[in-house]
């Protein structure tokens, strides 16, 4: 239990300035991720998943402000690094991101091999030959034949393009790879093929993954850990086995009941209502308007409670489940660690 986590995130915040006021897209997010572990971030459209990814990589649009909190990578707070050092030492080389819809953003007039080799030449200063050799190795890793190095994006199927985009993120052998909705646009067989590749890379290279998706069933293909996001905050973080079998937060329970299953006779239910605006989130619990278990206390902002080792829930219903005195003073954000302290 003494292995320090690879990535420790605490109280991460990101706000966008808009003409109608600040949008708090990431509002006090915390978690930890171990080496070789995959954490899935689940949540409805607009809850802040992509913004979280951008915050971790410090890839911010112009109207972003108030990026704050801590992001410790192997113990070092990389959020505090000056931009030049972050660019040189962290972004793409130690933490890489496959952006949402990246496969449609491939440069149509450059051969895909060159595009995969590019990060090595730009960020590592490798020679063309060296970089192409590494690109070929990475193609093999993601299951693309090496003669595809010479092809253009339009000559590839959707599944192959997604593998190329994955190769682009893996070519620098980063420790953490963030994938934003990598398979949402693909059909079941292609999707299963990509998930197989990710599982193999995780097992063979010990890469840590953060997989962002709104598809619960697909998320279970990779997840060791699950984080459920709602209106800019994590409302539950748990081991995948716990989360899928015994979701604790009322939103998590509704979400699991809404997942269609192949051999289930009853029609899945849908979660009534809509998430709140991040422009002016309601006081108290942000899920209250849709929560079937709401009670008087929910008018106050719920604290984060520990309902087991490495299991955190932001909901008043779990106020009694706290095991030890130290965790009773649970912070207002999901802080990393816990059981080892």
């Amino acid at each position: 239990m003494d292995v320090p986590p690879l990535l420790e995130v605490a109280d991460l915040r990101l706000t966008y300035r808009t003409s109608r006021g600040p949008v708090r897209a990431v509002d006090g997010v915390g978690f930890d991720l171990r080496r070789g572990e995959a954490m899935v971030v689940l949540g409805e459209s607009g809850c802040g998943k992509s913004s979280l990814a951008k915050a971790l990589l410090r890839l911010l649009p112009r109207n972003a402000e108030g990026l704050g909190g801590q992001v410790r990578l192997a113990g070092e707070d990389v959020l505090a690094l000056p931009e030049e050092r972050f660019r040189a030492e962290v972004r793409w080389t130690r933490i890489a991101l496959v952006m949402q819809a990246a496969m449609s953003a491939l440069n149509p007039v450059v051969r895909v091999g060159e595009q995969v080799a590019e990060p090595l030449r730009v960020h590592r200063g490798w020679s063309r030959v060296q970089a192409m050799e590494q690109a070929a190795r990475t193609f093999a890793l993601v299951g693309v034949a090496s003669d595809f190095l010479q092809r253009y994006p339009f000559e590839l199927s959707g599944g192959m393009r997604q593998r190329v985009v994955l190769a682009m993120a893996l070519v620098t052998e980063p420790e953490v790879v963030i994938l934003d909705e990598p398979t949402s646009a693909l059909d079941v067989l292609t999707q299963a093929g990509i998930m197989n590749v990710l599982k193999r890379i995780k097992a063979e290279l010990g890469t840590s993954f953060i997989l962002i998706t709104h598809d619960v069933a697909t998320s279970s293909e990779l997840a060791d850990r699950v984080a459920l996001m709602y209106a800019g905050q994590f409302v539950e973080v748990a081991d995948a086995a716990d989360f899928f079998a015994h979701p604790a937060h009322p939103y998590a329970r509704l979400l699991m009941a809404s997942v269609p299953r192949l051999h289930q006779a009853e029609r899945p239910v849908h979660i009534p209502g809509q998430p709140p605006s991040l422009l002016a989130p309601p006081a108290g619990c942000r899920f209250a308007a849709r929560c079937p278990q709401r009670f008087a206390r929910c008018d106050q902002d719920p604290e984060v409670f520990a309902s087991g080792a490495r299991h955190r829930v932001r909901c008043w219903l779990h106020a009694d489940t706290v095991g030890c005195g130290e965790e009773r003073t649970a912070s207002r954000t999901l802080r990393p660690g816990g059981e080892g302290r």
Partner: peptide, 26 residues
């Protein structure tokens, strides 16, 4: 049969096994 075998019901055990899918592409 291949299409049905590729579909996951949410289950933490999915992460520890490779899914059988037909080789090649359409």
């Amino acid at each position: 049969q291949a299409l049905l075998a590729a579909i996951a019901d949410p289950d933490a055990d999915n992460a520890s096994r490779q899914r059988e899918i037909p080789p090649g592409e359409p």
